[in-house]
């Protein structure tokens, strides 16, 4: 597990996104145990308070569940899990569209570029 952090975005939000990506990719599955806050802090090399904040936020979003004195787990709620993929897609598409609109790319041109690049294999695609 390794994240290249952007220093201008809250670290805890980047950690949550990382978890969502892992869920969308199927690397983390429903009900799976996740590292303790301290383990997460030292693996990702972040402040343990930030790890704590990310977990608290994920609990509020019902992404993870923590029973008293037990390790936290990914939720079993399929509805929540299905939403994650859609959410990640929308977030990235919105960002992409914003940057395309600033340089006046028409939707037709955009779609043809996307189709061509996708069929070429999209080798320059980077998940970050």
């Amino acid at each position: 597990m390794n994240i290249l952090f952007n220093n201008r975005e809250p670290v805890y939000i980047q950690v949550i996104r990382h978890f969502k990506e892992q869920i969308a990719l199927g690397h983390l599955v429903a009900g799976q145990e996740i590292p303790s806050r301290r383990e997460l802090g030292s693996t990702l090399k972040i402040n343990p308070n930030t790890a704590q904040r990310a977990y608290k936020e994920m609990e509020e979003q019902q992404l993870i569940e923590t029973e008293r004195n037990k390790p936290s787990r990914i939720t079993q709620d399929q509805q929540v899990l299905n939403q994650i993929r859609a959410e990640l897609i929308h977030e990235s598409v919105d960002l992409f569209l914003d940057s395309m609109k600033t340089i006046n790319v028409s939707v037709d041109e955009l779609i043809s570029i996307i189709r061509k690049r996708y069929e070429d294999g999209g080798t320059s695609y980077d998940s970050r």
Binding site: G41, S42, K45, I46
Partner: peptide
């Protein structure tokens, strides 16, 4: 040394 700050 930085990793000390993310350790317990």
């Amino acid at each position: 040394i930085a990793s000390l700050f993310s350790s317990g």
